[in-house]
């Protein structure tokens, strides 16, 4: 494992911890897109189905369990514990627009026509667009809690860091992962606007507000 992948995983983990802390601290899930969280749960369940038949390492297994359980816990917090704080009227992005293209791409571009490979490919494409409901919500409200902003930032950094990881692995191991590489470029592109505003406002201690 190289430093890029490790830092990426840590930042991914941090993003989820930030979100859980925010919801628990404020006893509210206001500003958080339930749809994005639902899509991530779907991403993890479809990708980590191999936990039952494909052992990689203790680290890998631990992280998979963490991502699945923590995301389902967030869904629980939003749906049950702090349900009144979540306003579905501003969380209006149609998730069919992300799920359907991901399914089509998974059927066209994959590593083989087995259920496992198609689900894996689906999860990768789905992940690249899963943040859209959250960004859409941010755009509608125009501003966000600092912690929500840090959450989105940490999540964006995670997939961005996987790009040098793949370049590094291509150079050192000759390993090629074109599907995840391309999906990651798409995902990072979706974040570019957000990163820009984060840099120009939040880094200078200002409130996150869209121009």
């Amino acid at each position: 494992m190289n430093i890029f992948r490790f830092l990426a995983d840590l930042s991914h983990m941090a993003s989820i911890v930030i979100l859980i802390l925010q919801i628990r601290k404020t006893k509210s899930a206001a500003g958080v897109s339930y749809k994005t969280q639902f899509l991530y749960a779907l991403v993890f369940v479809t990708r980590y189905i191999d936990i039952f038949f494909h052992y990689v390492s203790l680290y890998n297994t631990f992280m998979k369990i963490f991502f699945v359980t923590s995301t389902i816990y967030i869904l629980y917090l939003m749906r049950v514990q702090y349900k009144p704080s979540h306003d579905p009227n501003i969380d209006t992005f149609r998730i069919e627009y992300i799920i359907a293209p991901s399914a089509v791409l998974a059927l066209i571009i994959n590593h083989g026509y087995t259920l496992y490979e198609i689900l894996w490919s689906f999860s990768v494409w789905l992940e690249s667009g899963a943040i859209l409901p959250q960004l859409f919500m941010l755009q509608r409200t125009g501003e966000a809690e600092t912690l929500t902003v840090h959450y989105i930032f940490a999540l964006g950094i995670y997939r961005l860091l996987y790009i040098p990881n793949w370049i590094y692995r291509y150079v050192t191991e000759g390993r090629v992962e074109p599907i995840a590489f391309l999906a990651s470029l798409i995902q990072t592109a979706l974040y570019s606007d957000f990163f820009y505003i984060y840099y120009t406002k939040v880094m200078q201690g200002k409130k996150f507000e869209l121009p």
Partner: peptide, 10 residues
Amino acid sequence: NTDSKAHDEL
């Protein structure tokens, strides 16, 4: 590429 099937990442 058989390597890409390994899926050893998260």
